[in-house]
């Protein structure tokens, strides 16, 4: 049972981690993107639709990246270039993605949504490591997207913290006027961040449909994008922290499967609400946003 719990913790943490790493990049550049839920949903749908049509999982993954990037490009134009309120624009993006994916789903697969499945992404066992007790299956017998998500953690930590590009990105998030005065191009930096985040959110969505559920249902992202926003806060705007927070939330979600089987007297709705309850509780206990980028959520208008 512990082995299964460890495996589903990783499985549940992966989409959160992919989305939260994207949101981390965006927030370090000074933008808060509530539309991340929509980007995940778009990636989930585009991925499964293309994989179903072509029969090629890799084409599905590429389409998922494309879906997430397209959604974020709309958000970037509105939030960066038109400098509108980011929270309200992000909410609109979520509605847009829910509407478009719902419509296309009904158009393509019929009003009730004919049940269909795609060939799942196969787990890749890493030789003898996968046979390690307890953690072998969880860590070394997963789909490629899981390995990618965790490999991205050090890469993104280094890029944000040590590279020249990361320094510019952080400047855009802390003091956009100064960054622009230095010729760093705040609009360009925020666009790059949002497009990268779109790709990661799309991958997170692809994980849901191509590696986990093997199908699509309306609203399959089920608030994971919003939980990813909390993951970034709990992770203190730092890639390693985000990874740890994703694992914590992944474990909370995985816990519902264990508890549901073990304790039937407790209403299942409590388990379903657990990740959301945990989000509120952790944020309330941690309080404060002192580590947040200074210009987070402030539209920047170039003088």
């Amino acid at each position: 049972m512990l082995e299964a719990f460890a495996a589903s913790t990783i499985a549940m943490a992966t989409p959160l981690l992919l989305a939260a790493l994207g949101e981390l990049i965006v927030e370090r550049a000074g933008v808060i993107n509530i539309g991340i839920e929509g980007a995940m949903l778009a990636g989930a749908f585009a991925g499964v639709a293309v994989a179903h049509a072509t029969g090629a999982t890799l084409a599905g993954v590429a389409a998922a990246i494309g879906g997430g990037v397209a959604i974020n490009a709309i958000f970037a134009f509105v939030a960066v270039n038109l400098a509108v309120n980011q929270v309200v624009a992000g909410t609109a993006i979520d509605l847009l993605a829910a509407g478009v994916t719902g419509m296309l789903y009904q158009r393509i697969y019929g009003a009730t949504g004919r049940a269909f499945t795609v060939a799942p992404m196969r787990p890749i066992a890493l030789g003898p490591l996968a046979r390690l007790p307890l953690i072998g299956r969880a860590l070394f017998d997963q789909s490629a997207l899981v390995y990618l998500a965790f490999a991205l953690v050090p890469a993104i930590a280094w890029t944000i913290g040590r590279s020249r590009f990361g320094l510019s990105l952080r400047a855009a998030g802390e003091r956009p006027e100064a960054a622009d005065a230095l010729g760093l191009g705040v609009y360009r930096l925020r666009w790059i961040a949002l497009l990268a985040s779109g790709a990661l959110s799309g991958l997170g969505g692809a994980y849901l449909t191509l590696a986990y559920a093997d199908t699509f249902v309306e609203g399959i992202s089920a608030g994971r994008g919003y939980v990813a926003l909390a993951v970034v806060i709990v992770g203190r705007w730092n890639a390693w922290g985000v990874a740890a927070a994703s694992l914590m939330f992944g474990a909370a979600i995985a816990l519902q499967f264990v508890l549901q089987a073990a304790a039937t007297a407790i209403p299942y709705q409590l388990f379903l609400a657990l990740p959301y309850l945990l989000t509120v509780a952790v944020l309330a206990l941690m309080g404060g946003q002192a580590d947040a980028p200074s210009a987070l959520g402030e539209p920047y208008i170039r003088a």
Partner: peptide
């Protein structure tokens, strides 16, 4: 026409209004 179209309209109204 799927009724989800109204979500799209709502979203577009918000975006255009903000813009």
């Amino acid at each position: 026409v799927p009724a989800q179209l109204v979500y799209v309209v709502q979203a577009l109204v918000i975006i255009v209004m903000l813009a």
